[in-house]
């Protein structure tokens, strides 16, 4: 009895393994794993760019939308081939440690400090983001942070450092650990403040009760770089596919698409291309 079951199980698992092997070996080289920040997916930019790239090159791009921190963590382990991230200091560390081979600027936009229209901390129109942070802390009004090591999270923590405030553990400070879209909704529900990239805010504006209160500070610059993961560190990395997609992002066609993306829906571009001179 037990013998029959064992034999059946063994035959079944063997069949399963063979099927999986055959299916997976066929497509390997065509697949490119692309780890990126949530903002590029939440705004719909990738939905516009990726199909064009795939059609042009025949590669299949597996888009994994995570924070910049997680994207680089995947790159460090060779679990992704190419990254689009916006966390400059962490990117430099990533490059210095030899995990990336080419880092090229793709586009930029800026961060904005958003909050309830009533603005209980009185930060509207402030020229400096760190002053505004200080004012929010002094007023003790709820601030919702990402807390997920994303590019936005790193930027926010830097602004707290400049402001000389340590928000961790304060009653007025909460962290969602979620992407920007979710975090904006939480912030809106709680009538709190948060730091967002302008593009995600604009694409979510319709469903959140939040207004831009502080913008234009040079400290709020948000730059996106494409990085190819170093195949010397991880031989399984699809270096050719990574190169093809990185080249595509900085190509004239893609840069033009980025420049026009969002004009129709939001009346303003969401990203400004940097790569074409």
């Amino acid at each position: 009895m037990a013998g029959t079951v064992r034999r059946a199980c063994a035959a079944f698992s063997a069949a399963l393994v063979v099927t999986i092997l055959a299916a997976s070996l066929a497509a390997e080289e065509r697949n490119v794993i692309f780890a990126t920040t949530t903002s590029t997916q939440d705004t719909g930019l990738l939905d516009a760019l990726v199909p064009i790239f795939q059609k042009k090159t025949g590669y299949f791009l597996k888009v994994i939308a995570v924070g910049s921190g997680q994207a680089m963590a995947l790159g460090e382990r060779g679990e992704a081939d190419v990254l689009l991230v916006h966390s400059p200091e962490a990117e430099k560390r990533f490059m210095d440690r030899g995990f990336g081979i080419r880092r090229r600027v793709v586009m930029h936009n800026d961060f904005v400090l958003v909050g309830p229209e009533s603005d209980p901390a009185g930060i509207r129109g402030m020229k400096s983001a760190s002053w505004a942070f200080k004012a929010i802390a002094a007023a003790g009004v709820l601030f919702v942070g990402r807390g997920d090591n994303s590019g936005t999270d790193v930027k926010e923590k830097k602004l707290w450092r400049i402001a000389g405030v340590s928000p961790e553990g304060q009653k007025w400070y909460q962290q969602t650990g979620l992407g920007m879209g979710h975090t904006l909704r939480v912030t809106s529900e709680k009538s709190a403040y948060t730091l967002s990239d302008r593009s995600t805010y604009l694409s979510m504006k319709r469903v959140v009760d939040l207004a831009i209160l502080v913008e234009g500070d040079p400290d709020l610059m948000n730059v996106y770089h494409v990085i190819q993961v170093n195949p010397a560190k991880w031989p399984k990395v699809n270096a050719k596919g990574a190169q093809a997609f990185a080249d595509f992002l900085v190509s004239k066609g893609a840069q033009e698409l980025i420049a026009n993306f969002g004009r129709e829906r939001f009346g303003t571009p969401l990203f400004f291309p940097n790569a074409v001179r």
């Binding site: 092997l21 997976s24 070996l25 794993i33 994994i64 382990r77 060779g78 679990e79 991880w234 399984k236």
Partner: peptide
């Protein structure tokens, strides 16, 4: 995943 024991199958994200 690629560095895992079954990494050679290329199964992640399928």
């Amino acid at each position: 995943w690629r560095s895992g024991p079954l990494g050679d199958l290329g199964l992640l994200y399928t």
